[in-house]
Simulated assay, not measured.
Amino acid sequence: MSPRHATSRFTSKRKCLTGLVAGAVTAGAAAMTVVSAGPALSAQTPTASRPAAHQAEQVPVPRTGKALHARPVGNDPRVKMHAVAEQKKKLPTAADVLKLAESQVGTTENATGSSKFNQWFMTTPYAKAGVARYGGSVSDYANASWCDMFVTWVGDTLGVKGMGGDAFTPGHAKWFASQGRWGSTPKPGAVVFFSWNGGGIDGIDHVGLVVKDNHDGTIQTIEGNTDDAVKVRTRSTSTVVGYGYPDYQQ
């Protein structure tokens, strides 16, 4: 589908466009894989000015003349455990995502239908991948429906794993399903996909983020491109096609 197919500004049932998913992107039978590659690291011989990372740390000899045992710093399991713990601390939570999304409430588009999320999306690999898959050009995203661009911006800004990156809502939903991250439970921070007239995944019209389940047949959400702005909404679960579950730190 070309991005131009969703650029109309005068319909309440506009579908958002798509872009590249971090990692593998699957929409229908098409699949793309992005591989980040860098120069290979070569072994280096330790020198007096630049010791190897795994070289034993030399402890000063005390006045008694007896040397302490050298500690292999690079292989110390305590160092590795500490590094893993620090990495886990940096992983975003659902609360982090909702806090960032809420901070954008009130953000609107301009008179041409473009928002800051459109402008950001066009500078990312997501837009180029969307053009490769659906046709059109990157400039088509300038004033296209931006509900999924908003969700993608939130996930990308925080570095959320398993969030995907899209602007075409059916494609984004299919990616979640292909990753085994698709279900029917409205968890906080889940990406929620709506269809106003049914039709399953291919009939998805809109997307947002779940704030909470109200346990009365409705959910509270934060959505972009709803009445041309980012807003908090209460939606009936009868309009929900399904939920995508990012990989949040528990």
Rank of each mutant, 00 (worst) to 15 (best):
G113L: 00
P77T: 12
M1Q: 12
T221D: 08
R4F: 05
P188G: 10
L20R: 13
G136I: 10
V105C: 01
A43D: 10
E223A: 06
V160W: 01
N214C: 05
R78Y: 11
A94R: 07
D166G: 14
A56H: 06
Y245D: 08
Q104S: 02
V232T: 14
D96L: 04
L100M: 15
H69I: 06
G242F: 13
G130D: 09
L209N: 12
L91N: 11
V211T: 12
A40C: 03
T108H: 07
Q55H: 00
E86P: 05
S238R: 15
Q58M: 14
P62K: 05
P246K: 05
D76M: 13
A229M: 10
G203T: 08
T64Y: 08
V210K: 07
R235G: 07
G242I: 13
H172I: 00
A29M: 05
N118H: 01
V84A: 15
S238Q: 15
P186I: 12
T93D: 03
A190M: 09
V154Y: 05
G130L: 08
I204C: 10
R9H: 05
T226N: 14
F176Q: 06
Q44K: 09
L209W: 15
E102V: 02
L17Y: 06
V241G: 11
D202W: 09
A40M: 12
N225A: 11
G159H: 03
H215I: 04
V191Y: 02
A27L: 06
S2H: 08
W153E: 02
K13N: 14
G198N: 14
M1D: 14
F194I: 04
T239S: 13
G65L: 05
K99W: 01
Y134R: 13
V154T: 07
G203E: 03
A70V: 11
A101I: 10
K212N: 14
R50L: 13
Q44C: 03
A52K: 07
T124V: 04
G130W: 09
A31G: 04
T11P: 01
